[in-house]
Design a binder for these strands. Sequence first.
DNA 1: GCCGAACCGTACGGTACGGTACGGTCGCGG
DNA 2: CCGCGACCGTACCGTACCGTACGGTTCGGC
Lengths: 216, 216
Amino acid sequence: MLARTLPDEDWTARQGEVLEAALGLLVEEGATLTTAGVARAASCSKETLYKWFGDRDGLLTAIVRWQAAKVKLPRIDRERLDAASLREGITSFARNLLGVLSSDTSVALNRLAISHGGTGLGAIVLENGRREMGRRLKPVLEAGRDAKLLRFDASETAFRTYFGLVVRDVQIRLLLGEDCRFGGAEIAADAERATDQFFALYGADEMQALPAEQNA
Amino acid sequence: MLARTLPDEDWTARQGEVLEAALGLLVEEGATLTTAGVARAASCSKETLYKWFGDRDGLLTAIVRWQAAKVKLPRIDRERLDAASLREGITSFARNLLGVLSSDTSVALNRLAISHGGTGLGAIVLENGRREMGRRLKPVLEAGRDAKLLRFDASETAFRTYFGLVVRDVQIRLLLGEDCRFGGAEIAADAERATDQFFALYGADEMQALPAEQNA
DNA sequence: GCCGAACCGTACGGTACGGTACGGTCGCGG
DNA sequence: CCGCGACCGTACCGTACCGTACGGTTCGGC
């Protein structure tokens, strides 16, 4: 397997510290992030910033990549797959997704990428966010299909439906500034609900036992 | 019926022209919109802009409200409700929603509101976008429930599920700059798929005839 | 025809920020 | 001890843009 399509850039420890400080500042200051502010927060000089990252855009790109490289959730293994483990794998994926999307860091990074038009930042976030999520879950879904536990034609379509059932309007509401921050309990309940609905739509016949209308 | 909860600010014809020009400029220039640019595009002076809207923020707010006041989709009437008309009402709502969300104007306005942190712009977009959509569809859903065609406890939850099934990851992908622009055919197909899935989840028993796994 | 209000076009001050240059400091190899 | 490279802090420059001021023009009322 290829390590990554992206050239997994390796920063030095000091550069990592700077990027970490920049990320923290981005979370609390939003898109009004300034190079002077980063230099101050990271106790480094602007000249060094420009020497390392070349450009303000380069710095922002590095921040996004830095965060993207950090979230390396363990892939779910497809061995030992029965109905219960499949369901738990899918549900835990949803919990994870909701937890990430509702984090301050994710909101700040998505805000940055969105406000930054089309300079590639959005593509990076898309590739390491939404796309990577699909890459994580699809093998599980396909294993479930192989085990006759799920029925679907295209795993991409099935994943997008699950994504919609899980996320619904949460991400856009967070991005638009509504503080519908919810804790672990609500996340777990939402993940359960979405999984119930997903199995009602894509489960093999014997899996569709649970009624779908148990709304939170 | 109350006209609107918002004080339906009435601009003069000339002010409407200016706002229209500003909206067009916002679509093609994005968040880098400048007052001088608006003045140039609208053939008016910056002084007039500040006289009318007070502030750059006031101008942006006026643009958002202006667009919000324009999209006055006809509410669906709940009379003469059988299975076919309910389904058509819901599906046409989904078509409408997808059409609006994928429009350049919607993308630009959402980008603006998102990049603009928490200065109320996001709240306005939320109120006139996502919230208004709920206000439109919920009566239809409740009428369907009264007619024993749908089953759910909270119409809000049912609506949010439908929202997720319709929109999925489309909006965030558009906001992040991916050009997954699709035409009327794809929109119609997506609306049909989402409606099938919605009836599979929330339809009364005799409505769940259609299989759910007909993926695009 | 005259006045005033509204508005257009433009020019200007203030400021914030991206990007650069320069002096000073630390650590290391010779 | 010397030189050197990396880096910090800061001062600085150019530019872009917000917000305002001013002269000129149009238009309705009298």
